Computed example of a mutant assay.
Amino acid sequence: MRERYASGLSDTTAKQMIELLNANLANVIDLTLSGKQCHWNLQGAGFIGVHQLLDETTNRILEISDTIAERVVILGGEPNGLAARVAKDSVLEAYPTGITAVNDHVQALTKRYKMVAETLREAIQTAGEAGDEDTADLFTEASRIIDKDAWFIGANAKY
């Protein structure tokens, strides 16, 4: 582990937070890739609005992944966003292929956003209980953004 820069945290807590951050980094990267898969393949009524929305949501998720990775470095760790790590550790199921309908994509992607938001809320609690309020705040902000984007995307679904 690199020299720890975050003052006030024990090495044990820093290591725990690095693991927690990297686990959530895998989920967020997987969510980004799911969004791009959707973006590239959706077709039909409402296409352009969802297509443009996904450009915006992807940019926000990329900012979240950068923030998570930077926090890992601040705590003295090494962010691991490699494809093999993401594929191994993400809580998300593989994004479905072979679908093109806007509604099918919107439902599949909204489900994934909600799942990542749920894992972020669990991480908020874990970080708070460990005494790392900065990491808890980071997860809180990420959860708010992903919840809002899940709502934006899901608003395009026809159930």
Rank of each mutant, 00 (worst) to 15 (best):
E3C: 03
G8T: 13
L9C: 01
S10R: 10
A14Q: 07
K15E: 12
Q16A: 13
M17N: 08
I18Y: 02
E19H: 11
N22R: 10
N22Y: 10
N22W: 11
N27Y: 13
N27E: 14
I29P: 00
D30G: 09
T32V: 05
T32L: 03
T32S: 02
S34D: 15
C38A: 13
H39N: 03
W40N: 08
Q43R: 14
I48P: 00
Q52V: 12
Q52A: 13
L53C: 01
L54F: 07
E56W: 05
T57I: 07
I64F: 08
D66Y: 09
A69V: 14
A69S: 14
R71A: 09
V72R: 06
V73A: 04
N80P: 00
A83V: 15
A87V: 12
D89T: 12
V91E: 02
T97S: 02
I99K: 02
T100I: 02
A101N: 14
V102N: 00
H105P: 05
Q107N: 09
Q107F: 03
K111S: 01
Y113N: 03
K114C: 01
M115F: 15
M115G: 06
V116W: 11
V116A: 09
L120P: 12
E122F: 06
A123K: 10
G128M: 08
E133P: 00
A136C: 01
A136L: 06
D137A: 06
L138C: 11
L138F: 15
F139I: 11
A142W: 06
S143T: 10
R144L: 07
I145R: 04
I153Y: 06
I153G: 01
A155S: 11
